[in-house]
Amino acid sequence: MNWNLLSEVLISAVRMATPLLFVALAELYSERAGLVNIGLDGIMAFGSLVGFLVCFWTGNPFLGVLCGALGGVLVNMVYAFCTVTLAGQQIVYGMALNIFAPALASFIYRVVFGVSSTLAQATLMKTVSIPVLKDVPFLGKLLFDQTPMVYGVYLLVIVTAIYFNRTKSGLNYKAVGEYPKAAETMGINVVLHKYIACILCGFLAGMGGAYLTTCYVNTYSDGIVAGRGFIALAAVIFGRWSASGVLLACLLFGFFDAMQLRLQVGTDLIPYQLFQMIPYVMTLIALTIFGSKIAGPKSKGKPYYREER
């Protein structure tokens, strides 16, 4: 394998890892407040549609991403209300989102573009290269010649890591996910924190979805998310609920995705479907080897009743 090929695969890996990273961070914020949200796939699907539509109408990918993120928040408010206020089962509502949001997205797409599918295309976000740094051999093209979304997500990883480990507010936030009753006793508003978590989760997951239609491909199609929400969930477990761990996990999964794409082009002998399985199979293998018996925030998945003693 020569250097060019490797750098090509790595650049593509960074690109593939970005949506995963957005969504995995979304889940991180959610689970740190004790809310397991398996509806990420659904939120992403809705975010990708809204992002695409806005980008298609205005021609501005940045506005598309912003609106996609807001769309994600909107959808996730259903989850927030049902799991926080009504204290319903988180798994069930996550599942409901996975059914509801893609259906809504596909419905809106058909209403906008008609039942007979016409292929509508929008503009893609352009890469912004950082002067001087981009000329560094090998690393320059890899790290400093990407879309602003990529820079944004790495900044977000750093901010998240600092927030959770170095600030008082971040520790309060984590307390909500570990032991909400104790947190409440200490004067932390648990319900408010959970709602904030849902807003952040919806925003970031919607952004990850919008990335797919504004930076990756320039059309929307049903099933565009292709299980990335679940891979991101796996990345959170694999990354042991820390921002840096999640970053590494997403880069690894992104690398598998990039490798899969690259291998498909390379050979005709092996059917391409076997390569397409790589990200999913590697997720399973990675979890099997490293993901066992690690628990995240202690109260995750449990409903919180404020009145209960």
Binding site: I91, A226, L233, I237, M277, Y280, V281, L287, K293
Partner: peptide, 27 residues
């Protein structure tokens, strides 16, 4: 055996099955 969350693993197995079906009908 490994305590893995079945919601994630079953979804991964879904994609593997769907892709394998693709292999069957295309090849």
């Amino acid at each position: 055996w490994r305590g893995l969350n079945e919601m994630i693993t079953t979804i991964m197995f879904n994609y593997v099955a769907t892709l394998f079906m693709g292999y069957l009908y295309t090849t």
